[in-house]
Design a protein around this nucleic acid. Structure first.
Length: 422
DNA sequence: TCTGGGGTCCTAGGACCC
DNA sequence: TCTGGGGTCCTAGGACCC
């Protein structure tokens, strides 16, 4: 039997912020999405006030003011760097680590299965806490789905004190009979509704349905999920990063964009960022989609959405090539008279640059590669957007709001906190 | 006034082929 | 009234995740 653990950071973005700002400890805190739009992370105190994941900030303004909730803009540079530190602390406690998201990792614990895994997990949590201050919970089980489930109860039920080991059948059954089926990893709203209609409301009941029925309700995906709930692994802990299929750079605007020049400015910035992202992963793209649309929540306003797909031949990671394609797409899709609220660029058909098919008539690609490398180096050294194409412009009225972003505590020397011994 | 950004996987159905 | 039988490839859209 394999032994898998899931370690997950509690209220991750809030915990990262608290690591560097003591005034956030013990009070309700929300970290907002881009543009300060929605609540995407909440402290326990904020959850207790009924703030839900994804709640639009402007709709809960009153509650925020009444209870003095601290609202922070998101600071992904900080969260990304803290992730690196968390992983460094976890490393010694597992033979394999699969990074699942910015705040969760699956661990292969086979090599440690003869130990007391509750102690093992506890030592791991202590290490993470010491190195980063970030609180975590750990779930242990024979499959990823059961480790996820264990993690959820470890977090929810104080009885477990942050670590739940569900390898034992008696405990596992007891937990699963009380675990809402809608909270099982992989069961979303649509599937939960169908299952409820069949009278299936707990994880235990889902584990016990016929495979044929599982397939009927939710295709092979649900079938695999049921197998995992039964303790049969359908998915192993995988260290090798899978080849990614696509990537995107999309942003909502801080103010509406109503003219094509401003739109071009925004899209130029996204194209440059997309190229940078491709190059940092050593990839080239064969296809670019540019899209923009009006605010779908504002029903009274006239609506328009445009999306243009362009093929990139030869396949490329050259920002200026991406930019050219994106501009053609914007020109083709643009319509005057609308207030656009969001735009983005998506890249597909990605392959490693070294496998890029050569075309017959391409010139010397190395000159442009050198230009891109130089651009990346300048922008890395002197800050984002030091070197930009003129089309990006210098006034960015459309830029997303971020009214309360914390400093780059760990990644910018001028922001590193100063400790004075006195 | 103000509602995120970035991914994955699967299926159905159309186009096309012999 | 009846209107072949397979294939493959691609795309759009749904569902789900953090």
């Amino acid at each position: 039997m394999t032994t898998i653990a899931l370690i997950d950071c509690n209220n991750y973005y809030v915990s990262c912020e608290r690591a560097f700002d003591n005034s956030l400890v013990g009070v309700p805190v929300i970290v907002a999405s881009n543009n300060d739009g929605c609540a995407i992370a909440r402290s326990q105190e904020a959850k207790a006030l009924g703030v839900k994941m994804g709640d639009p900030i402007h709709l809960i303004r009153k509650r925020i003011d009444r209870h003095g909730v601290r609202v922070l803009s998101s600071n992904y540079t900080l969260y990304g760097d803290m992730q690196r530190r968390v992983l460094a602390a976890v490393e010694a406690f597992a033979s394999d680590i699969e990074i699942y998201s910015i705040d969760e990792s699956f661990l292969d614990l086979d090599a440690f299965a003869d130990r007391d895994l509750l102690d093992h997990a506890k030592a791991m949590r202590d290490q993470v806490r010491r190195w980063t201050t970030i609180p975590t919970c750990v779930g242990i089980g024979p499959t990823k789905t059961l480790a996820k489930l264990a993690n959820a109860v470890a977090k929810k039920n104080p009885l477990f004190d942050g670590v739940a080991d569900l390898r034992d059948h008696t405990l596992r059954d007891w937990v699963m009979d009380r675990f809402p089926v809608a909270d099982v990893w992989g069961v979303g709203r649509a599937t939960a509704t169908k299952l409820h209609a069949l009278g299936i409301t707990t994880a235990g009941q889902l584990r016990d349905i016929q495979m044929k029925q599982a397939r009927g309700v939710g295709t092979v995906v649900l079938e695999r999920l049921v197998a995992e709930l039964q303790g049969v692994a359908a998915d192993a802990v995988a260290m090798i990063e899978p080849q990614r299929k696509g990537m995107a750079v999309t942003r909502s605007f801080g103010t509406y964009v109503t003219d094509i020049d401003t739109m071009m400015g925004a899209v130029t910035q996204y194209a440059m960022r997309a190229g940078e992202k491709l190059r940092s992963h050593g990839l080239v793209a064969g296809e670019l989609t540019v899209f923009f649309h009006t605010n779908p929540h504002k029903r009274s306003a006239p609506q328009h959405r445009a999306s243009r797909r362009l093929s990139l031949q030869p396949m490329t990671a050259d920002s200026l090539e991406l930019l050219g394609a994106a501009r053609r797409g914007v020109e083709a899709g643009w319509r005057d008279g609308y207030a656009y609220s969001k735009a983005g660029i998506m890249l597909d058909d990605l392959i490693a640059a070294e496998f890029r098919p050569r075309t017959l008539f391409e010139g010397d690609p190395h000159r442009r590669e050198r230009l891109m490398t130089a651009m990346d180096e300048v922008n890395q050294r002197f800050g984002k957007f030091t070197l930009v194409p003129a089309g990006q412009g210098f006034r960015h009225s459309w830029k997303a709001r971020a009214d309360n972003r914390s400093p780059a505590w760990t990644t910018d020397i001028s922001d590193v906190p100063i400790v004075s011994a006195r």
